[in-house]
């Protein structure tokens, strides 16, 4: 059983809103001072799901793939420290400023090149752009079935049993391998690697691949191949100016608040 986990490095979503800045000229987020980028949290959960299947089966292999700059090595190392076996960094200036379509094309080409992959696990969405497309588009590129927003995944024979989250509950699904699964936060917390595992991860192999290595033409990836074109990235107005409710006691505060809400016809 060979599972690929797709991992993305993103600006820390816990960055305080006051430190979140956009460069209007480039339509890019300005990296916040002193706040390191992190592994997108849903990808960590996808890695956890893949590792649990590997461990339950007793054998098997987990490969973590990330498309990004040199710094994305950190995201790969984190998943290797969790217990993945090998890493692949898809690194080429031609990959930059693409969209979900080009990202999935590159990842799918890398998965095809590995050759013996049984399943691909992705986070339900990258916690920066929040599109939730790449897992689905990898499946379309590979011609594989896909089931998304999983809160539980188990391997039974040649099939994955996937519980997925719906608006009003959960759905149980079954899909034969090879398949793509995207994993949601309802799955549970990813493991936290300890120092010996972090040391061991440093010795694991990370292979680098460029567009040429994957047989991709620069015109079909990155900005050149993107179909969705970002025109403007901006910080929306918050609007409200908060009025703190006065009062000597919680009872007084509560009475004053309810009076204001009544005056505003909000209740």
């Amino acid at each position: 059983m060979h599972i690929v986990v797709c991992a993305k490095q993103i600006p820390d979503p816990e960055t305080p809103p006051a430190a979140f800045k956009i460069d209007a000229a480039t339509n890019k987020v300005v990296p916040a001072q002193g706040i390191a980028p992190v592994l997108s949290q849903f990808d960590g959960i996808a890695a956890e799901a893949a590792l649990r299947i590997k461990e339950a089966g007793g054998d098997g292999k987990v490969t973590v793939i990330s498309m990004g700059g040199e710094s994305a090595q950190a995201a790969i190392k984190q998943v290797l420290a969790m217990g993945a076996d090998e890493g692949v960094l898809l690194n080429d200036p031609a990959f930059e400023d693409g969209d979900s379509h080009t990202t999935a094309k590159v990842l799918a080409a890398a998965i095809k090149e590995l050759g013996d992959v049984d399943a691909v696990f992705c986070g339900r969405q990258a916690a920066d752009w929040d599109m939730g497309q790449v897992g689905l588009l990898i499946a379309e590129n590979l011609g594989w079935p896909v089931t998304i927003i999983a809160k539980g995944v188990a391997l039974e024979g040649n099939a994955l049993k996937v519980e997925r989250v719906l608006a009003d509950g959960f759905e149980k699904t079954e899909v034969n391998l090879p398949a793509v699964v995207t994993v949601s936060n309802e799955f549970g917390e990813p493991r936290y690697p300890k120092l010996p595992q972090i040391m061991a991860a440093a010795k694991k192999t990370v292979t680098k691949k460029t567009a040429a290595d994957l047989g991709l033409d620069p015109s079909e990836v990155g900005k050149a191949g993107a179909r969705l074109q970002l025109q403007k990235l901006f910080i929306p107005e918050k609007g409200a100016q908060v009025e703190f409710i006065e009062g000597e006691t919680p009872q007084e505060q509560a009475a004053n608040l309810v009076a204001k809400l009544k005056a505003d016809k909000a209740i």
Partner: peptide, 26 residues
């Protein structure tokens, strides 16, 4: 707290005291 940047009204306090008071008031 960031929530106040989006709020029209805010009560700074311990919910354990404020919520029962709001229940009584409502």
């Amino acid at each position: 707290a960031n929530i106040f940047a989006f709020s029209k009204y805010g009560i700074v306090g311990d919910w354990k005291q404020v919520v029962p008071a709001l229940i009584e008031e409502f």
